[in-house]
């Protein structure tokens, strides 16, 4: 473990938190103001009656938008831009969707089991046309369990950085460098959890989320490849290029 001073940890918390808030796509206050806007039954039905390829394309666009904000977040993480370009790409390719899923708890209304999507709050039934009910319900369960941890913005920021800096991703060239950054981030996360007086094993609960995130992302890849097998031209011509780069 690297030796890091308290002042250094405080600085890391501050920088990561600022980066998170500058790139989080929606402010909590904005979302709070929109929380009453739920899709009406006829709007839900209109999403459900879309052809699968249209709904897939819409979701790919929304995911890609969210990922662009995660890339900006990554660039502002202390030390990320000092890594070699290969490793920056490897970490984003493997971790950007995981961070989107972590950030989703900010857009999630646990009481109504709905997520902010395409301008209003949507329940799992809105995504029926995708044809991946199991994945959607797992994503909603994940968001709900993340919400139940009631993470503050600085805790969420550090957990997101911790996920992005996973040193066990395949194809890293400077694994040790990434490992150092991840360990420092974990110390800062631990530091902030203690400072926020959380003694309910929050760090262990967060560690458990790592494997859940990996499983969700691999299931996304499986569902995408099944979709692509049926609609190869739609993916090739209509999906956002960044989405194809990351998941192709």
């Amino acid at each position: 473990c690297p030796t890091v001073s308290m002042a250094e940890l405080d600085h890391l918390v501050q920088v990561t938190s600022k980066s998170h808030l500058e790139t989080c796509q929606y402010l909590r206050e904005e979302l709070h103001q929109m929380s009453w806007q739920k899709f009406l039954q006829d709007e839900v039905e209109s999403y459900q009656s879309k052809p699968p390829e249209v709904m897939w394309q819409l979701c790919a666009v929304k995911i890609t938008e969210a990922i662009q904000y995660v890339v900006e977040f990554a660039k502002r993480i202390d030390g990320f831009m000092d890594l070699c370009q290969n490793d920056q790409i490897v970490l984003l390719k493997a971790g950007s969707l995981e961070v989107v899923l972590v950030r989703m708890c900010r857009l999630f209304d646990s009481q109504n089991n709905s997520v902010y999507f395409d301008g209003k709050f949507a329940g799992p039934d809105v995504f029926k046309a995708l044809g991946c009910d199991d994945l959607i319900s797992s994503v909603f369960d994940f968001a709900k369990s993340m919400c139940s941890l009631h993470l503050s913005e600085d805790e969420l920021a550090l957990f997101s950085a911790f996920i992005l800096l996973s040193a066990d991703r395949s194809w890293l060239q400077e694994k040790l460098q990434v490992e150092k950054l991840q360990q420092k981030t974990e110390l800062a996360l631990q530091h902030v959890l203690q400072k926020n007086q959380r003694e309910d094993g929050a760090l262990n609960k967060l560690r458990c989320k790592v494997s859940a995130l990996r499983s969700l992302c691999s299931r996304h890849a499986e569902n995408l490849s099944a979709f692509r097998a049926v609609y190869p031209d739609i993916v090739r011509t209509h999906f956002p290029p960044l989405y194809k780069e990351l998941f192709g």
Binding site: K75, L92, K93, E245
Partner: peptide, 16 residues
Amino acid sequence: KEKHKILHQLLQNSTS
């Protein structure tokens, strides 16, 4: 590099 053209581009753009 060609395979991740857009990601490279996004990484190289200066942070606004």
